[in-house]
Computed example of a mutant assay.
Amino acid sequence: MRKFKNGSANFYTIFLDSVEKIIPEYCHKDSSNDKKFALLENEQFQGLLRHSPAIIGIYNNVQNNYIFMSDNIETITGHSPEHYMGPKGMEYAISTLPSEHAAIYTQQIFPTIFQYFQSQVACKDIKRFRFTGTFQLIRKDGSVIWCMQQLNVIETDDQELPLLTMLIMSDITCVKKDNAVDFVVARRNDQDLFQNVYAATFPSPNKTISFTKRELEILQLLSKGKSSYDVAALLSISEHTVFNHRKNMLEKSEKKNTAELISFAINRGFIQ
């Protein structure tokens, strides 16, 4: 495996620090370490997973380790599922990322996810959220692939803090057309449709492009052919406010016009 200049252990320490700041260990009453999922133990389902293009994992947020990882991770990445299990599992997972991507995840993306975990305690809403990110992964043979990972909380404790998180990860090398790390937070509405509430892209280790929920709402409407006047009326804001948001988005993304901005946002998955 490729060696990193800063070492994966350092990135893992950063990850643990961010966990402790947002989700103190004392908050949890039940570790759910022995939680069993009948479906995951079903032989037919296991057979389907072995041939699936998507890797499935279950992460214990209290123990900070995976309690399940589908066998097909070895077929896709070359890494054995056993390496992801136990107390060193997350450290191993981080070690498979290039150092610049490990830094983005431990210093930017994971803290953002944990902040959403904490912010949704009062409204008991965290299970409605989906966190999607892209990153490069170094396979066991040293080759590099692009992956997309989606996370969502599947079980919480009595304080509505996350106990178990499910991940679905796929190889997207054949469709990834740039070298940027993308991150999107989406929330499922009452019609069971996901709406993006936050989006960011990291073209380089030192540059981040992010759009607020309001900016995404405006961008989504503009992509449907709505004029600034129409957008203002639909969102009950002034046309001047729409203009300012659009100007800010153009500056953030370094695009020349709205058409380029919309194309950029669609390609990043910020809007649909």
Rank of each mutant, 00 (worst) to 15 (best):
F4K: 10
F4I: 12
N6E: 10
G7D: 04
F11A: 03
Y12W: 05
I14R: 13
F15V: 10
V19K: 14
E20G: 09
I22Y: 15
E25S: 15
Y26L: 14
Y26N: 15
C27T: 14
D30N: 13
D34T: 11
L40S: 01
Q44Y: 12
Q44F: 13
A54F: 05
I58D: 00
V62P: 01
D71T: 00
D71F: 00
T75I: 01
G78E: 00
S80R: 02
E82P: 01
P87V: 02
T96M: 02
H101M: 02
A102R: 07
Y105A: 07
Q107I: 10
P111H: 02
F114Y: 12
F117C: 11
S119H: 10
S119M: 14
Q120V: 08
V121N: 09
K124P: 04
K124R: 13
S143Y: 04
S143K: 03
C147T: 06
Q149A: 05
Q150P: 03
T156E: 05
D158H: 15
E160H: 14
T165P: 15
T165A: 15
K176D: 11
K177T: 14
A180M: 13
F183H: 06
V184Q: 09
V184R: 08
V185K: 06
R188N: 09
Q191P: 04
Y198D: 01
P203D: 01
P203M: 01
P203G: 02
T208A: 05
I209N: 04
I209A: 03
E215N: 03
L222N: 07
K224D: 13
S227I: 06
S228C: 08
Y229L: 13
D230T: 09
D230A: 10
V231F: 01
I237A: 07
H240K: 15
T241D: 12
T241I: 10
K247P: 09
K247H: 12
M249E: 07
K255M: 13
T258W: 09
F264R: 10
A265F: 08
N267A: 11
F270A: 05
